[in-house]
């Protein structure tokens, strides 16, 4: 398999035919990132003031130097581990409960009537607005942050699952029923695998929203964590530190989304793919 690309471009290997991916595309992706960094360096290095003020912003070199110092420090890795632990816990809870609730609502009118109204009222509330509630509800900040991360990913997963289950071809279920399969057989062997392609869309959106919320929650109420550190650096006017934090969030977000996409393509290999390869 692949995964030997440069550090600038974490590989997103194609499930179907990794060996066929032209290396030119990796080169182009790396070049795109490098060009963005180069532009940043030029604008900040030359102290460009074109209505927006690039002279205030640290240069790539300064940020790089700061980053070099931090990766030698245990604190950086602890922050990183804390943030990852929070997001993975919250996201995993959201994935399991979101899929279960989505299937329940789509398949049972009783569940839809009981849970539907409550969830529809909660859904428009931005997860980050739940910070006061989380502080009141949970004994520690840690659990509050996980709760907010969970709440952020839960609704995209729930909604996508509900729609995916609703759009299932009835003939699959009828086939399993006429083989003598019962309710659980239908759920495990028709509903879940059949809805998976749609659920993955929700998971993909969910992991992105989770990052936004875990970082925001850490900024407001965290102890340790990439979001907390970034805000700390801002309050002590350590701008290169702030940008190291932002870059860290960006790269971690990219890696986790890529992992969700990769896992998604692995479990939906059965989907007929014609031109998907070209579009990725």
């Amino acid at each position: 398999m692949t995964a030997t690309a440069t550090t600038a471009a974490p590989a997103v290997p194609e499930a179907t035919s990794a060996h066929r991916r032209p290396w030119g595309r990796y080169a182009l992706r790396a070049a795109s990132l490098l060009a963005a960094l180069g532009l940043w360096q030029v604008l900040t290095g030359l102290d460009v003031r074109l209505w927006v003020h690039f002279d205030q912003l640290p240069t790539v070199a300064e940020v790089g130097r700061e980053f070099g110092q931090r990766i030698g420090d245990g604190l950086y890795w602890q922050d990183l581990a804390d943030s990852l632990r929070r997001i993975l816990t919250g996201f995993a809870l959201a994935a399991v409960l979101g899929v279960a609730t989505g299937i329940g609502i789509a398949r049972s009118t009783v569940a839809a009537d009981i849970l539907g109204p409550v969830l529809e009222v909660l859904r428009p509330i931005p997860a980050i607005a739940l910070v006061p509630v989380a502080i009141l509800l949970f004994p520690s900040n840690e659990q509050g942050i996980v709760f907010i991360t969970f709440a952020a990913a839960f609704f995209p997963v729930l909604v996508s699952t509900r729609h995916a289950v609703g759009a299932l071809t009835p003939v699959w279920e009828e086939a399993v029923l006429t083989m003598g399969g019962g309710r659980w057989r239908v759920l495990a062997q028709v509903v879940l695998p059949g809805a998976l392609p749609g659920i993955l869309g929700g998971l993909s959106v969910g992991i992105g929203v989770s990052w936004i919320c875990v970082i925001s929650a850490e900024m407001i109420s965290g102890e340790y964590g990439v979001g907390y550190r970034t805000w700390q650096d801002y309050t002590i006017v350590d701008y290169p530190g702030v940008l190291v934090g932002m870059a860290t969030i960006g790269v971690l977000g990219w890696i986790t989304s890529a992992a969700v996409e990769f896992a998604g393509r692995r479990v939906t290999r059965w989907l007929p793919r014609t031109d998907r390869r070209a579009s990725r």
């Binding site: 071809t169 009828e174 059965w270």
Partner: peptide, 13 residues
């Protein structure tokens, strides 16, 4: 009582 459908009743996965 098995039922055979007109088309596409196999589970595609």
């Amino acid at each position: 009582r098995a039922l055979v459908f007109q088309e596409d009743a196999l589970l595609p996965w």
